[in-house]
């Protein structure tokens, strides 16, 4: 008989560090009058983003049964609160992404997500840097635009796809498999090069704020008002680890519905599980989302950085293989 592993995979010290980190975060927001909220983990709709795979469950509401999704992020529900006039809010909750498992990923993980009413992207980026500096005791903050960073590290223009130069770069950098894998998909090229060649170089114990993502990777961010080639979206990297993703939030319900539509089509064409548009979220946008910026931080990754851990299993008591 095989031995049953019941013990946690992390040390007690990591649990203490997590508790300390959560206390610090709650104090940070309480000092700034940002309201802590809770939203459902189980919901009748979920995000359409084709790169995110969800868990679903059956709710027995006799005599019928209804599919409920475990949330891949609390975004939609939190925006409904914003539309209802909550003012700035934050939440610390679990999020679930099917199939994501690895050194930096567990399918169930902890998210810190917050929204600041009347903050533009710059202002929110500053606040993110403040919080991370406080948690990680890192004072060096570097802000750089996505395209500038891309050019610095690779010599490539991230905003304009040129098959020849991209392919030549891949061959010269010993990643020839990029050519066959990415074909002529510009976004795939950007994801491939960024994750294989750029991310790891964002080290030196600095908080890197990378902003101005290509418009094709806008997700739920607004397109920049002065430059339609980029979106008002940023990401944060510390010592090669991706920590956070933030937007100047898209508030236009029509544009949001059409982005949903595109993603639903993409899911259909690529035979991914189908989802429906979250009608309650769209109705909230229709009613009016205040101008706001929002960001989500992976707290398990943050704890990995804080404790210099090399795998996520070292900072979670019971990762999926022990859950």
């Amino acid at each position: 008989m095989t031995e049953v592993v019941w013990q946690p995979s992390c040390e007690l010290e990591q649990l203490q560090q997590r508790a300390k980190m959560l206390t610090l975060i709650r104090r940070f927001f309480s000092e700034r009058d940002v309201l802590e909220v809770e939203t459902p983990l189980l919901s009748q709709a979920t995000g359409t983003e084709p790169q995110l795979d969800f868990f679903s469950s059956e709710y027995h509401r006799h005599p019928e049964s209804q599919t409920l999704f475990l949330q891949t992020s609390p975004e939609f529900a939190m925006k409904r609160l914003l539309a209802a006039g909550s003012g700035s809010i934050y939440q610390i909750c679990k999020a679930f992404r099917n199939g994501e498992s690895g050194r930096f990923h567990n399918p169930e993980f902890t998210i810190l997500e917050w929204y600041r009413v009347d903050f533009n992207l710059q202002k929110l980026m500053n606040e993110v840097a403040e919080l991370l500096s406080a948690v990680l005791s890192i004072s060096s903050v570097k802000k750089i635009s996505y395209s500038e960073l891309f050019f610095q590290k690779t010599g490539l223009n991230a905003l304009e796809y040129s098959p020849k130069t991209y392919q030549a770069y891949a061959l010269s950098q010993n990643i020839p498999d990029a050519v066959t894998l990415c074909e002529d998909n510009h976004d795939l090229w950007l994801d491939f090069i960024f994750s294989h060649k750029i991310q790891a170089t964002l080290s030196e114990n600095s908080i890197y704020l990378v902003y101005g993502y290509p418009a094709s990777q806008a997700s739920l961010a607004r397109i920049n008002i002065d430059n339609p080639a980029i979106a008002d979206r940023f990401e944060v990297f510390v010592n090669g680890i991706e920590l956070a993703n933030g937007f100047f939030e898209l508030a236009n319900a029509t544009e949001q519905a059409s982005r949903f539509e595109q993603e639903i089509n993409f899911r259909r064409e690529n035979k991914r599980p189908s989802v429906v548009k979250d009608s309650r979220f769209l109705a909230a946008l229709n009613a009016g989302l205040p101008d706001c910026s929002g960001v989500a931080i992976g707290l398990d990754s943050l704890l990995m950085l804080l404790t210099a851990s090399s795998t996520i299993d070292d900072v979670i008591a019971f990762p999926v293989n022990r859950a």
């Binding site: 790169q51 994501e100 990923h105 976004d187 950007l190 994801d191 994750s195 294989h196 990777q217």
Partner: peptide, 15 residues
């Protein structure tokens, strides 16, 4: 060795 790579909003890879 197998490493799961997932850019926040992008395509996931196995390296």
């Amino acid at each position: 060795e197998n490493e799961f790579i997932k850019p926040g909003k992008g395509q996931a890879f196995s390296r």
